[in-house]
Design a protein around this nucleic acid. Structure first.
Length: 193
DNA sequence: GGTCGGATCATCT
DNA sequence: GATGATCCGACCG
């Protein structure tokens, strides 16, 4: 992914929208799984009250990967059970990231179903897609330019086919329009507004 | 179809 | 002791 640097450069909200249409490929445990990104959320870092790296928290072991170089994978555990994955978008030392919330599963569906122990809702939610791709905390700090988890930039989804809304499940800055999604895609649940 | 509560833990109060 | 960038099974209509 040689174009990674330029593709992820710029305002994090713009990057979050631009990532719609790009592909995540995992070869974790030797099986390829692949999905096209259809829902994202931007987390702006220091100035964003909903971000794990908001100034009020400082740099901690948990959020440390958000301070890494652009194109790094930031993984955290949600509700003690689920893993959520983010693409780091800031300069090194400046935290910012895009949460991947949903994928259109395009390859390795059987492997995903085996990992998920069900054959529906394979990648429609941040915890679900991390499980489907086999991503866990051991992939925190991983460079998305190389296996076993790669980000392949794609042609961004036409803007008229995308929507924006408030982020899901956040209590602070809930009205900031930083969630982006492909309108009408089955893996994307309809927004509150 | 929709709603409710449990699982489980790093971080914060 | 409470909270949260979540998901799932149980239960109710």
């Amino acid at each position: 992914m040689g174009r990674r640097r330029e593709f992820l450069d710029g305002d994090t909200a713009d990057v979050a929208r631009r990532l719609l249409g790009s592909t995540l490929v995992s070869t974790v445990d030797g099986s390829e799984t692949r999905g096209v990104i259809v829902e994202t959320e931007a987390y702006l870092g220091l100035a964003d009250p909903a971000s794990h790296a908001h100034v009020s928290k400082g740099r901690t072991p948990r959020n440390d990967a958000m301070f890494a170089a652009r194109g790094t994978l930031y993984v955290y555990v949600s509700y003690g059970i689920h893993h959520c994955i983010n693409v780091v978008t800031g300069e090194e030392g400046v935290p910012a990231a895009v949460l991947i919330r949903a994928l259109d599963p395009v390859a390795g569906r059987e492997v995903m179903a085996a990992r998920r122990k069900r054959d529906t809702d394979l990648c429609s939610g941040p915890g679900r897609l991390a499980q489907a791709l086999g991503i866990t905390m051991r992939h925190n700090y991983h460079d998305l330019a190389r296996p076993p988890v790669r980000l392949i930039p794609g042609t961004p989804v036409e803007e008229s086919k995308t929507g924006a809304s408030g982020r899901i499940g956040v209590s602070r800055a809930a009205d900031w329009p930083l969630r982006f999604f492909v309108k009408g895609h089955p893996a994307v649940k309809p927004p509150r507004w």
